[in-house]
Design a protein around this nucleic acid. Structure first.
Length: 1033
RNA sequence: GGGCGAUUAGCUCAGUUGGUUAGAGCGCUACGUUGACAUCGUAGAGGUCACAGAUUCGAAUUCUGUAUCGCCCACCA
């Protein structure tokens, strides 16, 4: 027999085990079915999943389960991502903290081994989280972006791109950590404001003509970088640049607060001055630049260009700016625009290289002192001002970051990007919601080459071996030798002309790319003097192949043929460009086919303060904590309710006190604390931050959200509705359900089931998860439970109606379970099991059902069952029930008291309501004494009109009446009616409205007004009668 | 700086092509444990739909502007 409660802890484990044993979530090539495929966005193995992943995976599982029930061979491909930078950083940080070691102490192999064991640990944890959420992935196929299958796809792709000449080596400015000797991402760079100096220098003009200045003044906070200067820039049109600055300033001034005005006015004055004193000189310099005049870079004794570029701001300083393309991001841009040489002056440890031999080996601070002193000696140093300067610092090493021009590998994007744009433009790939198309197209439209190398050890190592030669002949010789090593197309060679650091001459790099892992070939290549590139590929390179690499590509597997292209990709918007776009272009490049038909972008979950959840902030919620407290079905239902079309959803987060189980609102303050005192029970609990032994002695509080309470309650409600049904199935005999012979309530249920099924099916097709959840919640709770089950009670007690009621009710529950299963798999599966014991054959034409609801057919939206008249009639019944209840409540009539009720209505309403008269007792504690046009008012009456239905409900208050309460109630209704009548009359007396609004709208308004007036009159009569009675008492 | 989104009840959110009295859940108030369910039931209170304009007979809904908040991008992944 079905237990009194749904114990999700034990039930979920049991059910998951049954599914697993029966292989319910496995998918195999099956020519009899259409495939439906989703590849999971592989979670990073950096850490455990939080609610954001919870949402992402819940939605995918809803889709997969729905499609599986709809008869597709539904494959959900699981796996995880190696997440290069993030994972290596986490492991390195841990290494530092716990063992005070750096990666150099362990060496490449040692570090990678450590990361693998980290990966194993977190992969297990992540997959465990997904399983407990009920994710019905085909676990046999679990992949990892660094496993041999993915590696083979990465190698094949890289080799192919290399052969297409789409891979090249170039320079790129990276954030270089000179201490860790690695590039760090922008995320890990922190700008710190420090005290420093602003140095003014003068660079001599080479052979100035008469009237031309002999020097150009520039200023910098980083004097030592002048050794790498390759130009000085001046604005190409300083006059109009100044005009623009001035007009912007004036515009601001007009709307500025009074106290800000004086400062702005001073700025304007300075600008006017500058126009007089500086503008002619800047224009002269601009002309000199156009004339191709050169400057002499002091100390380096190198000619550098004078260029006209908008980066120079005529309103600032001297109006001229030195350009160091190899060591400043903005200057780098200028260097690209102006085709300037890029002179790298640093070694990777942050000391100076031999570009200017006198400074070789100096550290940056030493070089700075030296440069300033040397310039002073030459008389080229101007003012030195004190100034606050922004300095980029590495989060990881806490040392200054140097912008550093490093060799990087790039993928040429022109055609690849275009192909991915076309796929979306012509809707071979659709993106929902549509607004995300723009970002995708804009980003790809820039067609920026993709830098794919990362200075890391954790990842797919770049399969290129290179050697550098000073002449092209030598390079060609090396190329031929390399090519001779292999003849079956596993090896490709290119020669690329490059500029060496700090040297003018070209060098010739020979690159050997190997298609597959082949130790022998590799060692042969190396014996020719080639070295493998130390870098690894960008994580997104392997992620971009995910939809086909996981299916076995480059092998032409039968899975690939059957399941590819996949159907739906479900992800969050922050990786539309990084991941989605790249999957599309790689799919097209590798297979000539798009990777998926549609992309669904779901909202981001923020906490109660509108901040993104993250473990480092302390506001991250582990789905397992929510599952422990509320159950997996509640977690899933709650999340699916959040999946609206907006971009963000908020989820206020609470600590659950481990002592008293009260939920304590998480604040910005307490979320970073190591311990918190529970305001309810006054005991102390610890948080994720607790480290000291004293703190850890307190029990740890889970972080959850009360948003899931509603869902947990819903699970409970469903369970109990099922319990009621099952408790009343004693003696159940399957029997044909003949729709046209059913009473109104049964036909109503069938009609509602048809409608709800249709709406749910359509909603899921259009990713309206929140809408579908609400729909099913409302139907299950407010229709199935509140009305159908309540009406069933007297019918089940009556032998005449019992059998058919059992049949219809079993069918209703059956359909409800199927509809809810994708969202709430565990509780529905559990109930399905119990239902199957009592009613193994059920349905309109009883048939044996699948042993798992997970494997059952999705319900048919049987259009023939939809009956608008029945639904409308039933609504009348519901209205009358509501009316009786309101009267009872206003009269404070005790629930156990049965009140006599007369329903004054039309004949057609009587036909409907009469057979249902008994149900008013079950639903409203009412005994119906009369129904129809001749039903009269009672002596002591509390009437309530339902104007739209022409029904008046009369309740006999003989035994109950509270005259004052009744008067108050009627007067309130009267006021309301008057107000509404006023509104309507106003509207209808507006000639414009009557003339211009559509006739049916006007007609409707008139009808409503007439009803309202009738209602008001009747109220006035009743009030008068009541007043008379009160005064006579 | 560029792009996108949000602003509706105390809180978290719905609100279809503009058209009766703007909805739900939680919270709140009152009453109530009848054999499915107190993780419940019934009823109730609570909203100038951010602000200012415009279009329209009619605007939460369309347009423009403002404010506030958030997210993405700015050679960061």
């Amino acid at each position: 027999m079905i237990p009194i409660r749904f114990e999700h802890q034990s039930a979920a484990i049991e059910i998951a085990d049954k599914w697993d044993k029966a292989g319910c979530s496995n998918a195999d090539v099956n020519p009899d079915k259409k495939p439906y495929t989703i590849v999971i966005p592989p979670p990073n193995v950096t850490g455990a999943l939080h609610l954001g992943h919870g949402l992402n995976n819940t939605l995918q599982d809803i889709l997969i389960r729905t499609k599986r029930m709809q008869g597709y061979e539904a494959l959900w491909m699981p796996g995880t991502d190696h997440a290069g930078i993030a994972t290596q950083a986490v492991v390195e940080r841990k290494l530092k903290e716990q063992e005070n070691q750096t990666r150099h102490d362990l060496g490449r192999e040692g570090l990678v081994k450590r990361i693998w064991s980290w990966k194993d640990q977190y992969e297990t944890r992540i997959l465990g989280q997904l399983k407990r959420m009920g994710c019905s992935c085909d676990w046999r196929r679990t992949r990892f972006t660094l496993d041999p299958m993915c590696a083979s796809a990465v190698r094949a792709t890289f080799f192919d791109l290399f052969n297409q000449q789409l891979i090249y080596r170039g320079k790129r400015l990276v954030n270089w950590d000179t201490f860790l000797q690695t590039a760090v991402s922008n995320d890990e760079v922190e700008n710190v404001t420090k005290k420093g100096h602003f140095y003014h220098f003068r660079y001599p003009v080479i052979d100035p003509k008469s009237g031309e200045p002999s020097h150009v003044e520039i200023a910098t906070t980083r004097p030592e970088t002048m050794l790498g200067d390759t130009a000085v820039a001046v604005h190409p049109d300083p006059a109009s640049a100044l005009d623009r600055v001035e007009s912007e300033l004036r515009e601001k001034l007009a709307s500025a607060a009074a106290k800000e005005k004086p400062a702005m006015e001073a700025q304007l004055d300075a600008l006017t001055d500058r126009r007089k004193t500086m503008l002619p000189k800047l224009e002269q310099l601009r002309d000199m630049a156009a004339d191709g005049r050169k400057l002499m870079l002091p100390l380096a004794d190198r000619e550098i260009a004078l260029v006209a570029d908008e980066w120079a701001k005529p309103e600032l300083g001297s109006g001229c700016v030195k350009i160091t393309p190899a060591h400043d991001p903005n200057d780098y841009e200028v260097g690209l625009r102006q085709s300037l040489p890029m002179v790298n002056m640093l070694n990777s440890d942050g000391t100076l290289n031999g570009v200017v031999p006198a400074y070789q080996g100096l550290t940056i601070p030493a070089a700075r002192k030296q440069v300033v002193a040397d310039l002073e000696q030459l008389g080229l140093l101007g003012d030195v001002e004190d100034r606050e300067i922004e300095m980029p610092m590495s989060d990881r090493s806490k040392t200054p970051i140097e912008p550093f021009l490093a060799d990087q590998w790039f993928v040429r994007m022109d055609d690849l990007a275009q192909s991915a744009m076309d796929a979306v433009s012509d809707e071979r790939v659709s993106i929902y919601p549509e607004r995300y198309r723009k970002g995708y197209l804009d980003w790809l439209g820039e067609k920026r080459d993709w830098p794919v190398s990362r200075q890391l050890w954790w990842g797919h190592r770049i399969p290129i071996w290179s050697a550098v030669f000073s002449s092209s002949t030598e390079a060609d010789e090396a190329k031929e030798k390399a090519q001779a090593l292999e003849a079956s197309g596993q090896l490709a060679v290119t020669v690329q002309e490059e500029q060496a650091d700090g040297e003018a001459e070209s060098r010739y790099a020979v690159f050997v790319c190997l298609r597959d892992e082949d130790a022998e070939l590799e060692s042969n290549v190396e014996s020719l003097g080639f070295e493998q590139d130390p870098d690894v590929l960008d994580t997104w390179f392997s992620s971009a192949l995910w939809p086909h690499s996981t299916l076995g590509w480059p092998q032409q597997t039968k899975e690939l043929e059957y399941f590819y292209p996949t159907s739906t990709l479900c992800t969050s918007r922050d990786i539309i460009t990084l991941w989605v776009a790249r999957m599309v272009l790689m799919g097209l490049n590798n297979l000539g086919e798009i990777p998926f038909d549609e992309v669904f972008i779901h909202p981001t979950i923020l906490d109660g303060n509108g901040e993104r959840m993250s473990k480092s902030k302390g506001n991250g919620v582990d789905p397992l904590d929510v599952i422990d407290k509320f159950g997996p079905d509640a977690l899933r239902f709650g999340l699916s309710q959040l999946a609206t079309e907006t971009q963000d959803v908020r989820m206020p987060v609470q600590y659950e006190c481990p002592h008293c189980e009260k939920l304590i609102e998480q604040t910005k303050k307490n979320r970073t604390a190591t311990t918190v005192d529970c305001p309810a029970c006054k005991k102390t609990f610890s948080t994720q931050w607790a480290e000291s032994e004293a703190d850890r002695a307190h029990k740890r509080a889970a972080v959850v959200s009360e948003k899931f309470e509603t869902s947990r309650n819903f699970v409970n409600k469903l369970w109990n509705a099922a319990r009621f049904t099952l408790m009343n199935l004693e003696g159940y005999e399957p029997a044909e359900i003949k729709v046209d012979q059913l009473p109104v309530e049964d036909r109503w249920l069938l009609s509602r089931l048809a409608t709800v099924t249709r709406q749910a099916t359509e909603g899921l097709d259009r990713f309206k998860f929140a809408e579908v959840s609400r729909l099913l919640y409302d139907f299950a709770w407010n229709e199935f439970c509140s009305f159908y089950v309540e009406i069933a009670k007297p019918r089940l007690a009556d032998d005449a109606s019992r059998a058919m009621t059992q049949n219809v009710m079993a069918h209703g529950l059956d359909t409800l379970l199927r509809l809810l299963h994708p969202v709430m798999p565990f509780v529905t599966e559990s109930i399905w099991g119990f239902l199957g014991e009592l009613a193994p054959e059920r349905g309109l034409t009883p048939k044996p059902v699948a042993s798992f609801v997970m494997k059952a057919d999705w319900p048919d939206a049987n259009a023939a069952h939809f009956d608008e008249t029945i639904e409308r009639q039933f609504a009348e019944f519901q209205e009358v029930v509501g009316a009786i209840r309101r009267i009872r409540a206003s009269q404070s009539i005790a629930p156990k008291e049965t009140v006599p009720v007369a329903i004054h209505c039309t004949d057609s309403s009587r036909t409907l309501l009469e057979p249902m008269a008994a149900y008013f007792t079950a639903l409203a504690g009412a005994e119906v004494t009369a129904i129809g046009p001749s039903a009269n008012a009672f002596e002591t009456d509390a009437p309530l009109a339902i104007p739209s239905l022409e029904i008046e409900v009369h309740v006999d208050l003989e035994k109950f009446i509270d005259l004052d309460a009744e008067l108050a109630r009627l007067e309130k209704l009267h006021t309301q009616a008057c107000k509404q009548i006023g509104g309507k009359e106003g509207k209808l007396s507006n000639d414009n409205f009557v003339a211009r609004a559509p006739a049916d709208v006007v007609e409707k308004e008139r009808a409503v007004l007439a009803d309202l007036k009738r209602q008001r009159e009747s109220l006035e009569r009743d009030i008068a009668k009541l007043k008379e009675k009160i005064s006579s008492n």
